[in-house]
């Protein structure tokens, strides 16, 4: 059987959704309560890594393919840069070009919310990628070792 036992798999399926929702909450409310894009992104990445540990990498990659993770990784970083550039239209790099809104509302404080979301996408996908790279690398090098042994 690929992955861990049935107990672990069932609990994982049950918990993963909650972890992701909590991560999204940490990201979206980063400008109102403690937290932010980085912490939230790591939590979301942890959910995917949990799925990968419990079910094996094929199931995790079916939820988030490697190519998509690469696109989100670069795209998140690029989005951060572009939001910074957007500030040039009102004066300077990283100047707040969005409306400030009303304090304590979800849609407030201008560019901070979009920046948090961009960081969260970037952090979650890149941590997922590095974990999957470690998982895949082991298999390949192990197989290569056996091949060398046989040759």
């Amino acid at each position: 059987m690929i992955g861990m036992t049935l107990i672990v798999k069932t609990i994982t399926d049950f918990v993963v959704g909650f972890i992701i929702v909590f991560g999204v909450y940490i990201v979206l409310y980063g400008h109102l309560t403690p937290g932010g894009g980085f912490a939230g992104g790591v939590i979301i990445a942890c959910a995917f890594i949990l799925a990968m540990l419990a079910h094996g990498k094929d199931v995790a990659f079916s939820k988030l393919p490697e190519k998509a993770a690469h696109i989100i990784d670069s795209g998140g970083a690029l989005a951060f840069l572009l939001i910074g550039w957007f500030g040039v239209t009102v004066g300077a790099f990283f100047m707040n070009a969005f409306g400030r809104g009303e304090v304590f509302r979800l849609l407030s404080s201008g560019m901070i919310l979009p920046l948090n979301i961009a960081i969260a996408f970037k952090v979650s996908s890149s941590l997922f990628l590095v974990f999957s790279a470690l998982a895949i690398f082991r298999r390949r090098s192990f197989r290569a070792m056996i091949e060398d042994e046989l040759a």
């Binding site: 795209g75 970083a77 690029l78 840069l81």
Partner: peptide
């Protein structure tokens, strides 16, 4: 910004 943008774009 230019080299950072290039660095993010190239792998994408």
């Amino acid at each position: 910004a230019i080299p950072l943008g290039a660095a993010f774009l190239i792998p994408l």
